[in-house]
């Protein structure tokens, strides 16, 4: 079942089209990656899903019904990229306040806040003020306030920015655990490598448009270039292979760490490559397919644009 369906969503501001005809579906319990460079329109899209902006055109369906911002936002948790807390307010009070704004009663909020504070080892912070917290501590508190009301859809915009590896892992584990319990997670970022690790499904946005949609594995299969890495007992160079009588099944395109990188020609299978080496009497120690990273795929998709050059530098 889909928790969220977005159809032909469009939002324009005075000078530009921020979101242009975006459609996608989101399966319940999945972890969904919303990718794209800064300025691609991710935040505008999220703001429409969270009821902050009204779309100019298009439909949003939440849990099978047309999206009703007044009520449905109580079932959504949103941690914006631009996030902050009241500096002078005590942390416990702050958590209760934000949870109550999401519709919890004060006693429910108190009970859940205590559970989360124990889980994240934050009990001693209760009466401290936000201005006394480090940035990482503030991020943890922000995450807790986002999920305290047990939202069905959790939207995290760059959740790991400003977190050290220990706290990053803590939150990552919590994201998995929430998804296992049936929450759906939208994970918005411009850091492609984080998505490969966490997400089941991604869409890639650029300049307001959707340029890619699929599972992480599927997308990689779609963009794979039939590259394989072969480890051999006796290191061979390109010249050695030519001398042995090159095969039309593959071509050597490079060497990394003493291993050969080969590209399998159209109409041939990996077995053709392996059997050539076996026939030549070479011992094979490993044979691995090289799949493109999402970053590579993105660069290929926007090739030639200034944006691609920017991402190549990363």
């Amino acid at each position: 079942m889909n928790i969220l369906e977005v159809k032909d969503l469009r939002k324009t501001f005075a000078t530009q089209i921020a979101v242009d005809q975006i459609s996608f579906q989101l399966e319940k319990g999945s972890i969904f990656g919303l990718l794209g460079p800064n300025g691609a329109g991710k935040t505008t899209l999220i703001r429409m899903i969270t009821g902050i902006f009204y779309p100019d055109a298009g439909e949003i369906t939440f849990e099978g019904r047309p999206f009703d911002p007044m009520n449905d936002i109580l079932r959504i948790g949103y941690m914006p990229e631009e996030r902050g807390l009241y500096k002078k307010m005590k942390i416990g009070e702050q958590a209760l306040y934000l949870a109550q704004l999401k519709g919890l009663s004060r006693s429910e909020a108190l009970q859940r806040a205590k559970e989360w504070f124990v889980k994240f080892e934050m009990q001693s912070w209760w009466n401290k003020k936000v201005e006394d917290l480090s940035k990482g501590m503030g991020q943890k508190l922000q995450f807790v306030t986002t999920v305290m009301h047990e939202p069905r859809l959790i939207i995290l915009d760059e959740p790991f920015s400003g977190l050290d590896p220990v706290n990053s892992n803590l939150i990552k584990d919590e994201i998995y655990s929430l998804a296992r319990k049936g929450a759906t997670i939208i994970f918005s970022t411009h850091r492609m490598e984080q998505v490969e690790e966490i997400c089941d499904h991604i869409i890639l946005m650029n300049r307001g448009q959707k340029i890619l949609d699929g599972t992480v594995g599927g997308v990689k299969q779609q963009f794979k270039e039939n590259l394989f890495r072969i480890g051999l007992e006796r290191p061979l160079t390109e010249e050695d292979i030519k001398a042995a009588g090159a095969s039309d099944a593959f071509a050597v395109v490079g060497r990394t760490d003493g291993q050969l990188v080969v590209k399998i020609a159209e109409g041939h299978r990996p077995n053709d490559v392996l059997s050539w080496f076996i026939q030549k009497g070479e011992g094979i120690t490993s044979f691995v397919e090289i799949l493109p990273s999402l970053n590579d795929i993105f660069i290929r998709l926007v090739e030639g644009t200034p944006l691609a050059r920017q991402f190549q530098r990363l």
Binding site: I52, Y78, P80, L98, L101, K102, T145
Partner: peptide, 8 residues
């Protein structure tokens, strides 16, 4: 804080 609150 504004965006956090206006999502509620």
């Amino acid at each position: 804080i504004a965006e956090v609150v206006v999502s509620s």
